[in-house]
């Protein structure tokens, strides 16, 4: 109760002061890690659509097909996780608590550049595990940029060492991201409509089809199978904040095509 953080509003400093830092030293003999993924995001007419398959694998084993890899960090931020879930989910939890802690304690929201750097900082803190190859995380981030009026969603991707890059059109990460990037590049250049011009139903349909294609080339990507009720995690970031595309909406809009 009395330990106050050395840096006002910084939740990681508060945790460190209470000896509760989330990322410790790696074990000498790490067990097999669950990983592999396809997550991506692209601008559509009303904002950003962020999508993720729901499969987690360990080696050639399918661990589960019910993972949510696109996470709401706060009312105006989304994170898509690719890599080792143990580290990625912990990072998402740290970010979510950190952003809300800052907003509540400092009585103002964290700026977009600070949010972007907070993720880079966590990735750098995770560097020892990344270098050992047992804790690699390569996330995607979408958040509202309030420096422009009206506020506009911005997209970022990271390398596992913490380098951050902003993308104008689309981003993708994970083992199935190669084919996704190719198709989105083609669509943005030659598509009619381009993804950035699509309505929400059109964008959802494109996202689901992209995951179907990615799963054909990458066994670690869970596809979309309406027959068995297997859909994706789809979240939207618009000027009003974060929303979720339900499985019922996914089924209806996929069938319309």
């Amino acid at each position: 109760m009395n330990a106050s953080p050395p840096m006002a509003g910084d939740f990681l400093s508060l945790l460190a002061a209470q000896k509760l830092a989330p990322f410790g030293a790696p074990a000498a003999n790490a067990p097999a890690q669950t990983q592999a993924t396809t997550v991506f995001a692209f601008h559509f007419a009303a904002g950003v659509l962020m999508a993720g398959d729901r499969r987690a694998t360990a080696g050639n084993q399918i661990v589960t097909d019910k993972v949510d890899k696109v996470l709401e960090i706060d009312a105006t931020s989304l994170l898509a996780i690719a890599g080792v879930p143990a580290m990625a989910f912990e990072m998402a939890r740290v970010l979510s608590t950190s952003f809300e802690y800052y907003r509540r304690s400092q009585l103002q929201p964290l700026s977009l550049p600070a949010k972007v750097r907070a993720i880079a900082r966590l990735l750098r803190d995770n560097l020892p595990l990344t270098m050992q190859g047992v804790g690699v995380v390569a996330p995607l981030f979408a958040a509202l940029d309030h420096s422009v009026q009206p506020a506009r969603p911005a997209l970022f991707f990271y390398d596992p060492l913490g380098a951050q890059f902003q993308s104008a059109g689309y981003v993708a990460s994970g083992s199935g991201s190669g084919s996704i990037r190719s198709i989105l590049s083609f669509q943005e250049r030659y598509g009619r409509p381009k993804p950035s011009q699509m309505s929400l139903p059109e964008a959802v349909r494109l996202a689901l089809r992209l995951l179907i294609v990615a799963s054909e080339f990458d066994s670690a990507t869970g596809g979309v199978n309406p027959a068995t009720g297997g859909f994706a995690t789809l979240r939207v970031l618009g000027p009003d904040g974060v929303g979720t595309v339900t499985e019922e909406q996914q089924a209806a809009w996929l069938a319309e095509g």
């Binding site: 939740f11 209470q18 939890r93 608590t97 802690y101």
Partner: peptide
């Protein structure tokens, strides 16, 4: 206020 926010967020995180 700060003490309450610190305690609540530490509790929520841990």
């Amino acid at each position: 206020r700060q003490a309450a926010i610190d305690a609540a967020h530490t509790e929520a995180f841990t």
